[in-house]
Amino acid sequence: MDRLKESYWDQVIQPKRSLLDLNLREVWRYRDLLRMLIKRDIITVYKQTILGPAWYVLQPVLTSLIFVFIFGKVAKLSTDGLPMFLFYLAGITMWNYFADSWTSTSGTFRMNAQLFGKVYFPRVVVPLSKVIGGLVKFMIQLSFLVVCMLYYLVFEDAPIVFNWYMLAIPLLILISGLMGLGLGTISSALTAKYRDISFLIDFGVRLFMYATPVIYPLSSVPPEYQKLVLLNPMTSIVEAFKFVLLGSGSFDITNLLYSAGFALIVLVAGMIIFNRTEQNFMDTV
């Protein structure tokens, strides 16, 4: 009888699944859910505010202005001869995409406990929706950055050189998105079990920014510390982002490969841990 054949059943639920059972086919089947979740996140962000999507731009602008004052005027940190505002804005834009990807996915289990307890769908859709949805915000900020660049180019005669390296931007986005996703999914599993870790993550991500050349160029770091700063996988990404847009900074293939490799490793680790947590998470809340 055909029911004895293994292929008769569409699905067998068992205690243990293989380590990296991503079940991409199922995720693909839920692609419409992915789209709805992204839409929900974007709509709800501006439905609850007066300024709406303007916050996407206001937030980095205000941060940059404060940085201009504190780090530029008071501390007089170098910006490699670039207009301070542009320098900080570029750094913040790239950094924020990574940091948002990380922090927003780290709450996956904690924030959705109610939902996860009632209905099944591939849980990985939720962190994916955060990372992909973050792109919308990033694109708005990037366009604003380009507008600012044009302004400085035309009216302030800033030394900005457009170059072909710009084509590498999608790659930089991909690497930082995947790295954020990997670190975020690892964090989400940790926060699901031990709640105090979520405070650590919020705080840690903010501190981590100062270990990344966002408010200072890598070239201003004393040579003996440069290796240390380069260990940070976001260093080469932020540097490259500034290089392709503003012409300052550095574009180092080896360092970028290091970042890509790092992203891949945390992503795989993240998926394994996420898979594990997904199966028994509901028993611990």
Binding site: V12, Q14, P15, Q279
Partner: peptide, 14 residues
Amino acid sequence: SRITAPSIGSISIR
């Protein structure tokens, strides 16, 4: 409904 995984045994679904 696959909200949580079993400790032993299996469920086959078509």
